[in-house]
Design a protein around this nucleic acid. Sequence first.
RNA 1: GGCGGCAUAGCCAAGCGGUAAGGCCGAGGUCUGCAAAACCUCUAUGCGGCGGUUCAAAUCCGCCUGCCGCCUCCA
Length: 468
Amino acid sequence: MNKLTVYNNLTRKKEVFEPLHPPTVNIYTCGPTVYDHSHIGHARSSITWDFIVRFLKFMDYKVTWTRNITDIDDKIINKAKEINIHPDKVARIYTYSFQEDMLALGIEWPDFEPRATQHLSQMFNFINGLIKNGSAYHIDNDVYFSTTTFKNYGRLKGQSISELEKGFGRIEPNPKKKHRLDFALWKGVKEPNEYGFESPWGKGRPGWHLECSTMNYSLFGETIDIHGGGDDLVFPHHENEIAQSESFTGKQFAKYWMHNGMIMVDGKKMAKSEGNFITIKDALKDSTSNAIRFFVLNSHYRMPLNCTREAIIAAQNGINRLQEALTDFEEDESSNNSNKNKFNNEILNEFKNVMLDDFNSPKALSVLFKLTDLINIEKDKKTKNELQGTLNYLSKVLGLNLITTNTVDSTTKDKILSKLIDELISWRTESKLKKDFSNADKVREILNKSKIEVKDLSENKYRWQIKL
RNA sequence: GGCGGCAUAGCCAAGCGGUAAGGCCGAGGUCUGCAAAACCUCUAUGCGGCGGUUCAAAUCCGCCUGCCGCCUCCA
């Protein structure tokens, strides 16, 4: 059997995946900073780690997935000032919004979803350890990590410290730092009433990178198998995580570093200033979670991905074709158990083999379409059902949701339902105006059967409500 | 300015030295009360540009162009 290969950013090549303690796989991916609604870039990232975790489980690995929530950060504090709400509340509002989006996108819940503010005491331990072993220093109310003490600094980015220094633009170095590459572990407040937490170094807040190191250490210990995140986090975020963690433990932090590519909108970077910023909630308004996932899966996770209206429509049409192939599928009770014997083995292996090559989801989708073709020309009911079962099963490995929904997923169901109800009622109103009361009553009866009660108001206005 | 990534048909996209996957759209046909679905056929002599290596390059090398990402808190 072929082996799983993954592209490791640390070595810049594909490597055979060998977890530290098979079949256990511990994976940590960087979640959002919760200061605004999440956008389709977050969707891509989440879908990517979601299907990678699903595939690892499909390969019988025992996966534990952690995705953090950054709930303390300057962006959150700024947002709090802007809308005059306490920073903690801002974080909670957008944490909820993010989780709502994740559910809508069909992302599995991670096993752990730690938040920075809940790990302050562990952070203090971490910082103390780093100060004690000479990797960090305390100045005024700040604590900085001393990058020159870490010999591998720059390895992930692929540059030495002196090369990194050369790259500096016009940024004024912070005079408190011993070296301009040093970064904050703890940032003291500048004003006494500024938002912050008490610490051994005074009131302040943690540096951004620290939470990931600390929470990894708390949840997984010294070394994890996979650390993932967006491409934009390679430097400095992940570089700094490595520096902190490895200085603290003396062990390798993560064996494999994986990064997903960025998303563009109409060939340009997505930015509020460009006017092409798309939140997940917006995206779901005129497409479906299946379409968004298909769109993401259709390109390799490391590649940049261009989002266009046409591409989303194409994705939805692709989903429709896959769903069409399952219309007469009869799912028996045993479908939910993981007995792979009743599936088409040849296809199963083909799917597995393309995915083993660094999670080549575009090829995996092409296998699903090949399966669809086979289903559509199959005459024998039993064989067809087996093929359909295989399609259903494999689509779930990718996180697609092809049959539970009668072609409408739960996210879009509500709005389509509302539209349908309004259409029916306006048909009824038209009938009433034409004095075709029998038809009008018929419509009302249909709605009643669906537990919807229509109430006439004056001037042909109406309201409806659920009547159980 | 430094480092990294990407550039394949109208759109999205795979490809990792052996002669261009897949999906969407489009065209023609079969089937059909109509429509849809399904099925069959067609749709890049070409892979940003120019050179080079090789029997052979979208795939390797060099240069150029364009786009994307990153370059410590304060952004």
